[in-house]
Simulated scan of single mutants.
Amino acid sequence: MSERFFLYDETVETKTRFVSFMGEHQRFDLAIIQSDRYFGKHLVLDIQSNRFAIIGADDLKEPGYLEFAYKLNEEDASELRDFLGQLV
């Protein structure tokens, strides 16, 4: 077996918020992770769907970004966008 080649292997301090809320048609169970990585953006994990995305204010303005990342319809994505807009 060859020696493993790491691109990086770092440990960083994070701040993690777990939040659950009910939208009009869908429940959201999120883990929102903040660290010094990803240029100040948040790592947002949707625990129910096993999907995640790196999200900043610019990503929330990008049409279709949340719909694609979390496989949501426009209405559910709008609810998630409204919530995340308060954080980032």
Rank of each mutant, 00 (worst) to 15 (best):
E13T: 03
I47H: 05
L80A: 05
D9L: 06
Y65N: 03
E62C: 07
A69N: 13
V88H: 12
D58H: 06
S20Q: 10
K61W: 03
L7A: 04
A31Q: 13
I55W: 08
S49V: 01
Y8C: 05
V88S: 02
Y70D: 05
V44R: 06
L43R: 10
L84C: 07
D29Q: 08
I54Y: 09
G40D: 13
A31W: 03
E79I: 00
E3Q: 15
E24V: 11
M22K: 13
V88C: 05
L87P: 09
T16L: 00
G85D: 01
E75R: 13
I55G: 02
E62I: 00
L80G: 05
K15C: 10
V19S: 11
L30N: 08
V12S: 09
G40V: 04
K41S: 09
R37T: 12
E10R: 03
Q48L: 14
E79P: 08
A69R: 14
L30D: 04
Y38S: 10
I47S: 05
A69L: 07
H25Y: 08
E10T: 06
D58Q: 13
L66P: 15
F68Y: 15
I55L: 14
G40C: 12
T16C: 02
R37H: 12
K61G: 02
S35E: 10
N73G: 11
L87T: 08
A53M: 09
K71W: 15
L45K: 12
Y38A: 13
M1D: 13
S49K: 15
F68S: 14
